[in-house]
Design a protein around this nucleic acid. Structure first.
Length: 561
RNA sequence: UGGGGGAUCGUCCAAUGGUAGGACAUCAGACUCUGACUCUGAGUAUCUAGGUUCGAAUCCUAGUCCCCCAGCCA
C-alpha cells in the first residue's frame, strides 16, 4: 500500500511505464537519462517539464541523470547561457553530481565515427551549394535526386573530409553527408548532413575544429557514449528516430539507447519558444531574461515563484503525446498552493487613500497584535502601529456602492484588520471632484477587531498607519501576451500585452517589510497576493514583485456583471 | 497529394475488454477578523460511421480533423 501511494505521489505516465517495464524485463539494470540543453538561451518552464521528467525518473528508479550541453553550434552558443542553465537546474533542486558533459567532449570520437562511415561507404563529401542541395532534396511528396558527388571513392571522401577539417575550404563549401536514401518518405533519411564547415571558435574546444557535427550526428552517439538508457525528447524529433537508430546500427557504439518522445508544454497567454523569448530580450520588450514577466526559470524565480510550485505544476499537467495547451490558472494555482502554506502575512496598501479617524486622539497611537499566519499558530504574531491617520486601499471605498459591495462607503461600518470597527462619515474631495480623504469615526470598544455587543460587519479591510508605514514600490505583473493562444509567429509582438507591467509607486507597507529589504522570503500582503522583494530593493525604497494575486471572487463577480 | 504522430469534461491527465475517474476552471452552498484558505455539492467528455464481443474509450474496418518534417538550427 505504501508503494502504491508513493507511485501515485509521483504520478505515472507512458514513459515511466516503459522504464518500469524495461527494468522489470531486465532490459536494463539501472536507468540513465539526460537533460540536453543547447546553451543558446535561458531555460523556461517548458524545459522544467523535461528536467523534472528526466531527473525525476532517474531519482524515482534509483538511476542517474546527466546534464549534457548540446554545444555543436559555436555560432549560437555562449558561456553566459551555460552558467544560467546550471544555476536554473540547481534551483529546481536537481543534482547531476559528476555527470556534467558536453557534446563537444565527444568531438574526437564523433570525427572518427564519421571517417568510419566514409570507409564503409555510408558517408560522402558533397560539394553542392546549399541551394542545390535543397532543390535536390525533393519535396514532401516528391523524392529527391542523388547528388552528383554521391559516388566518390572512399579515398577521395577521406581526403576531402580531412581537408574540410584542416580548414582548407570556406564555410558552406562542402558538407559530409550520410548515404541513406534520397527517395525516403522521411526527409531526415535523404542523405542528412553529418558535418558542416563552421570556422568559428568554440567556447570549449577553441579553434581545434573547422567542422562541427550536426545535431543528428551528435545526439544519439553522445547518448550511446554516456550509456543513456532512455533518451527522452519532444515530439518534433519523432521522425528523427529512424536516423537516430540508423547511426546506432551502423557505428561501433558502446550502447544502444532508445529515444522516446513526449509533447512539449504550452501555456495560455504565454509563448514558450526560445526564438521568441530571445527576441523579446534582444529588442527590449522585457528588461532581460529574468524579467518577472518572462516564463523563464530566471524570470519566475525573480517573480517569487518557489521551485516547489514548479514541481507541483509539472506533476499536475502530466506527460503524454497529444499536443496541448495548459490553462495558465493551473500554474497560478500551484504557486498559490505552495506559498499559502509558508508565506507570512503582512499588510500593505498598494493604492493608498488617507483616512482620518476623527474621534481617535492625536499622538503616537498604540500597538496592536497581528498574527503572522492564520493557519499556523507557530508562526507567532507581531505588533503593528495604529494611529489617528491611516491609509486604506482606494478600491475599498466607493461613494455610491453597488449592491454587493461590503466595504467602505458613507455611513458603512467595516473592520480594520486586527484593529477597530470604523464608520465612514464623509468623503473629502479635491477641486476635480476626486476623493482624496475619508473622515471616519471608530468604536473604542471594538479594539482588536471584535464588538462586545456581538454586532457584525460584512467586511474586514487592511490598512497601514500613516505615520509609521514606509513608502514602497510595487510591481504588478500581468500576462505577457494578451491572447490566450498567441501564435509566436512573425509579428508576434502585436500580441504583447501593453499592461503586462504595472508599477505602483506610492504603496505603503508595514515597517517590518521595509526592514527586510534583502529578504528573499515570500510574504502575503493580506487580501492582495503573494509578494517578494525584487533585487532592486533598497532599505530606503523597498521594491516588491507580485508573484501572484489571491483568488478574488468579488472582482470576478464585478467583471462579469 | 509522401513520411511521422495525435484525437476522452471548457482545459490538462487517467482508465491497457468489465461502474469513464482526478486536477484546474465554472456554478451553488458552508465557514471566515483576508470576498483568501478550508469544506460540501453540482454540471459538463470517449472525433464520426460501421463491425467483433455477454460487454468497447480500449480490438477490427472505413472516414474526419489536428500537429510535426523539405536548416549546412536544435
Amino acid at each position: 500500500m505504501a508503494t502504491g501511494e508513493a507511485i501515485a505521489e509521483v504520478g505515472r505516465d507512458f514513459i515511466r511505464d516503459i522504464v518500469q517495464a524495461d527494468l522489470d524485463g531486465k532490459r536494463h539494470s539501472t536507468v540513465v537519462t539526460r537533460f540536453p540543453p543547447e546553451p543558446n538561451g535561458y531555460l523556461h518552464i517548458g524545459h522544467a517539464k523535461s528536467i523534472c521528467l528526466n531527473f525525476g525518473i532517474a531519482e524515482e528508479f534509483g538511476g542517474r541523470c546527466h546534464l549534457r550541453f548540446d554545444d555543436t553550434n559555436p555560432t549560437k552558443e555562449e558561456q553566459e547561457y551555460v552558467d544560467a542553465i546550471e544555476a536554473d537546474v540547481r534551483w529546481l533542486g536537481f543534482d547531476w553530481g559528476q555527470n556534467l558533459f558536453h557534446a563537444s567532449d565527444y568531438f574526437e570520437r564523433l570525427y572518427q565515427w564519421a571517417e568510419h562511415l566514409i570507409r564503409v561507404g555510408l558517408a560522402y563529401v558533397d560539394d553542392q551549394s546549399q541551394d542545390d542541395m535543397r532543390t535536390a532534396r525533393g519535396t514532401l511528396t516528391e523524392p529527391g535526386r542523388n547528388s552528383p558527388f554521391r559516388d566518390r571513392t572512399v579515398e577521395e571522401n577521406l581526403d576531402l573530409f580531412r581537408r574540410m577539417n584542416a580548414g582548407e575550404f570556406d564555410n558552406g563549401a562542402r558538407v559530409l553527408r550520410a548515404k541513406i536514401d534520397m527517395a525516403s518518405g522521411n526527409i531526415n533519411l535523404r542523405d542528412p548532413v553529418l558535418y558542416r564547415i563552421l570556422k568559428a571558435p568554440h567556447p570549449r574546444t577553441g579553434t581545434t575544429w573547422s567542422i562541427y557535427p550536426s545535431y543528428d550526428f551528435a545526439h544519439g552517439q553522445s547518448d550511446a557514449i554516456e550509456g543513456i538508457t532512455h533518451s527522452i525528447c519532444t515530439l518534433e524529433f519523432e521522425d528523427h528516430r529512424p536516423l537516430y537508430d540508423w547511426f546506432l546500427a551502423n557505428l561501433p557504439v558502446p550502447s544502444k539507447p532508445r529515444q522516446y518522445e513526449f509533447a512539449r508544454l504550452n501555456i495560455t497567454y504565454t509563448v514558450l519558444s526560445k526564438r521568441v523569448l530571445t527576441t523579446l530580450v534582444r529588442d527590449g520588450h522585457v528588461k532581460g531574461w529574468d524579467d518577472p514577466r518572462m516564463p523563464t526559470l530566471a524570470g519566475l524565480r525573480r517573480r517569487g515563484v518557489p521551485p516547489g510550485a514548479i514541481h507541483d505544476f509539472v506533476k499536475r499537467i502530466g506527460v503524454a503525446k497529444a499536443n496541448s495547451v495548459v490553462d495558465a490558472n493551473v500554474l497560478d494555482f500551484s504557486i498559490r498552493e505552495a506559498l499559502n502554506k509558508t508565506a507570512l502575512r503582512r499588510m500593505a496598501v498598494l493604492r493608498p487613500l488617507k483616512v482620518v479617524i476623527e474621534n481617535y486622539p492625536d499622538g503616537p497611537g498604540e500597538e496592536l497584535d497581528a498574527v503572522n499566519h492564520p493557519n499556523n499558530p507557530d508562526a507567532g504574531s507581531r505588533e503593528i502601529k495604529f494611529g489617528r491617520e491611516i491609509y486604506i486601499e482606494r478600491e475599498d471605498f466607493m461613494e455610491t456602492p453597488p449592491k454587493k459591495f461590503f466595504r467602505l462607503s458613507p455611513g458603512m461600518e467595516v473592520r480594520l484588520r486586527y484593529a477597530y470597527f470604523i464608520t465612514c462619515r464623509e468623503a473629502v474631495k479635491n477641486a476635480a471632484g476626486e476623493v482624496v480623504e475619508l473622515r471616519c469615526t471608530y468604536d473604542p470598544a471594538t479594539r482588536g477587531g471584535n464588538a462586545p455587543d456581538g454586532r457584525k460587519v460584512k467586511a474586514t479591510i487592511h490598512w497601514v498607519s500613516a505615520r509609521d508605514s514606509r513608502p514602497a514600490e510595487v510591481r504588478i505583473y500581468n500576462p505577457l501576451f494578451s491572447k490566450p493562444y498567441p501564435t509566436g509567429g512573425e509579428g508576434f509582438t502585436a500580441d504583447l500585452n501593453p499592461q503586462s507591467l504595472e508599477v505602483l509607486g506610492d504603496a505603503r507597507v508595514e515597517p517590518a517589510l521595509a526592514a527586510g529589504s534583502n529578504s528573499a522570503e515570500p510574504v502575503q500582503f493580506e487580501r492582495q497576493g503573494y509578494f517578494v522583494h525584487d533585487p532592486e530593493s533598497t532599505p530606503d525604497r523597498p521594491v516588491f514583485n507580485r508573484t501572484v494575486g489571491l483568488r478574488d471572487t468579488f472582482a470576478k463577480e464585478v467583471t462579469q456583471s
